[in-house]
Design a protein around this nucleic acid. Structure first.
Lengths: 206, 206
DNA sequence: TAGATTGTTAATCGATTAACAATC
DNA sequence: TAGATTGTTAATCGATTAACAATC
């Protein structure tokens, strides 16, 4: 048995964490309630309490949740107490944007390596990093024990890169390639394809 | 009553469409079955047939689905028979990547306008487009009847931009800002925050 | 204390799947 | 025809919600 907590519950925890962080850092708040959090996120308070109850009791009757305490607990649950080093594959426009994005900081991730196969990009500096030859990818990932990768390569390379990442131990992959990828059991994969998201919304447009 | 087809079903149709297009264009296939499509996508064949049955009968017993016919039908269902002009707000690294991304073509969308508030970016050429002053945003969107927008601005601007977009008629918004946005009923919103996705996956990492 | 809010239960609601008659 | 596959039904499975005792 791995874990019988539904994946859909796990998927909401980062949303809670993000909003709690916002409450604490942007608004200087100390406490909140499932009702307030739910109202801000468009989620029922019952669902928030039920989700959290899978992991323990983090609140107090009458006063709700101490925000920093709940943040800490969510970080533990999601394995974010240390930063994950992330390998980014693909140094095109999107890789460039990801390399320069500072939104990973303090949220559990650090892009530590960037790879590409284009000789004109290899050696280029991106933010603090140097683009490395993708032929070095396996060696670096193994030596550094990298478990998390982001794929920003064209669709026709994505499956090959995925296979190579998995082969050297990567277990969580976020792919921006507009294609379904096959991964073995035990490897988590998540997709980001703006067109898929837009197409879902245009269904509702007249 | 708007439509009683579950949103989760609508969300899978673009995935089917993408894989069908791949089957036709990359592999030159003419026909497929719910079983084959499901196997390629990690979805049960029953679910695919059930999803499609909400909209009509598109297959034939014994032979399955004619791919190009089903593609055409899915495009009609998702309102992709004409291209939607999209307004992109934010011309930073991510806006740059989106402006140069050619994955929108032939999938129902065309980024037609880019806006930013940074004087050093206004007037800059991105792909085929010129970055316009965001103060011109409302006027352009109204005149061009733009209904779809992509937000690639910092979190602290995202709600204001959203409100302004909605006020001039935008009804579908894809936001890359790492923040929950409030929109009125009748406006669809979709989010892309890589950290949220990574955090869901690290739960499963030891 | 009185008011507020939790964690949890049971009921409701909704989605997925197995199975199969129909039929190409 | 025989084999394959659809569309649909009913059963199963899973997620959400309403309600409330417990208690801060």
């Amino acid at each position: 048995m791995t874990s019988d907590i539904p994946d859909i519950v796990i998927g909401r925890l980062p949303i809670y964490l993000r909003e709690l962080t916002r409450l604490a850092e942007e608004e200087g708040r100390i406490n909140t309630s499932s009702h307030e959090l739910g109202k801000r996120l468009g989620i029922s308070s019952a669902q928030i309490r039920k989700d959290l109850s899978h992991f323990g009791e983090f609140g107090k009757q009458g006063t709700g949740y101490h925000i920093n305490y709940l943040i800490e607990k969510l970080r533990e649950i999601l394995h974010l107490t240390n930063e994950w080093d992330v390998a980014l594959v693909g140094a095109g426009y999107l890789g460039h944007a990801l390399a320069h994005y500072h939104g990973f900081e303090h949220r559990g991730f650090r892009i530590s390596w960037i790879f590409d196969n284009d000789p004109t990009k290899i050696g280029e500096q991106m933010d603090q990093l140097i683009v490395l030859d993708v032929t070095k990818m396996e060696q670096v990932i193994q030596e550094q024990h990298i478990k998390v990768a982001v794929i920003a390569v064209p669709a026709n390379y994505a499956q090959e890169i995925t296979d190579r990442l998995v082969a050297v131990g990567v277990r969580s992959i976020l792919s921006y390639a507009p294609i379904h990828l096959n991964v073995p059991r035990g490897v988590e994969i998540s997709y980001s394809d703006p067109v898929i998201q837009l197409q879902r919304m245009t269904y509702y447009l007249p």
